[in-house]
Amino acid sequence: MKHEWRKKEKQLYLPPAKPEIVTIPPFQFFTIKGSGNPNDPAFGEYIEALYAASYAIRMSYKKGLQPAGFFEYTVYPLEGVWDLSVEAKKHYDGTIDKDELVFNLMIRQPEFVSDEFAHQAIVWAKQKKANPIIEQLQFEEIAEGHCVQMMHLGSYDTEPESFETMEAFCAQNNLRRKAKNHREIYISDPRKVAPDKLKTVLRFEVE
């Protein structure tokens, strides 16, 4: 049976629109780091690179090249860990200049994907897409651990309202945010969904 994360991993990807505590186990991802405004056209090349490698794995069975343990699944959603550049942090006054953002974008991969097969998928992606950024893809395991998360409903520009709610929840539950960076998981496709209907999981690590 096809593994569909929307149905089988709801706690991770479809949380309620209010803060909750969750423990995230280690997962493996294709990742790619960059900086700058996510509204710039060049940002799309990072996303294209991640999906090219992810779909190379997903569709490998059609050529009989799938790895041992392969099962059919829905490709996981795009995620991003966001922070400010070192220089931006020095003069941060509560407002964010998107040109000064740094990011680590990623797409989770199933547990049957080995290091060797992941790197083979990157080779296939480079053969199919003339995107030089594919060269920058990494395959790594990431463990988030103890976190607070919630579903943000609406435009990306209104996320600060949800973060305020999450910070208040932490204060009420004697939790401390470990760092000012945060993770976003993009459940909706902004090319197809109106800004006020977007669903984005917001998450940060706590202790």
Results as ranks from 00 to 15, higher is better:
residue 15 P to R: 05
residue 36 G to M: 11
residue 112 F to K: 07
residue 140 E to P: 01
residue 52 A to M: 07
residue 203 R to D: 01
residue 3 H to W: 14
residue 196 D to T: 12
residue 63 K to D: 15
residue 189 D to V: 11
residue 41 P to N: 08
residue 173 N to K: 13
residue 164 E to H: 08
residue 142 I to T: 07
residue 2 K to W: 05
residue 172 Q to F: 05
residue 126 K to D: 02
residue 127 Q to E: 15
residue 2 K to Y: 06
residue 146 H to G: 01
residue 13 Y to R: 08
residue 121 A to M: 08
residue 108 R to W: 07
residue 50 L to F: 05
residue 13 Y to V: 08
residue 28 Q to M: 07
residue 13 Y to A: 06
residue 40 D to S: 13
residue 121 A to T: 06
residue 60 S to K: 08
residue 107 I to W: 00
residue 96 I to P: 00
residue 19 P to F: 06
residue 167 E to T: 14
residue 169 F to A: 04
residue 161 E to N: 10
residue 190 P to R: 06
residue 167 E to H: 15
residue 155 S to N: 12
residue 120 Q to Y: 13
residue 92 Y to D: 08
residue 32 I to A: 04
residue 181 N to D: 12
residue 192 K to E: 13
residue 125 A to R: 03
residue 204 F to H: 03
residue 37 N to S: 14
residue 164 E to I: 07
residue 16 P to L: 10
residue 176 R to M: 15
residue 153 L to S: 11
residue 172 Q to T: 10
residue 82 W to V: 05
residue 174 N to D: 15
residue 127 Q to D: 14
residue 106 M to G: 04
residue 139 F to N: 05
residue 197 K to R: 13
residue 170 C to M: 14
residue 148 V to K: 02
residue 182 H to C: 08
residue 195 P to N: 05
residue 190 P to I: 10
residue 115 D to R: 10
residue 130 A to P: 00
residue 29 F to K: 01
residue 187 I to G: 05
residue 153 L to P: 02
residue 198 L to Y: 05
residue 188 S to F: 11
residue 4 E to P: 00
residue 139 F to K: 01
residue 1 M to V: 06
residue 77 P to C: 04
residue 101 L to A: 08
residue 176 R to S: 15
residue 113 V to L: 10
residue 20 E to K: 15
residue 151 M to K: 08
residue 101 L to D: 05
residue 86 V to M: 09
residue 28 Q to V: 06
residue 150 M to Q: 15
residue 85 S to H: 09
residue 111 E to N: 13
residue 173 N to I: 04
residue 74 T to I: 12
residue 129 K to W: 04
residue 74 T to M: 11
residue 48 E to P: 00
residue 178 K to C: 11
residue 132 P to C: 09
residue 113 V to G: 01
residue 145 G to V: 09
residue 135 E to G: 02
residue 24 I to R: 09
residue 99 D to M: 05
residue 149 Q to K: 14
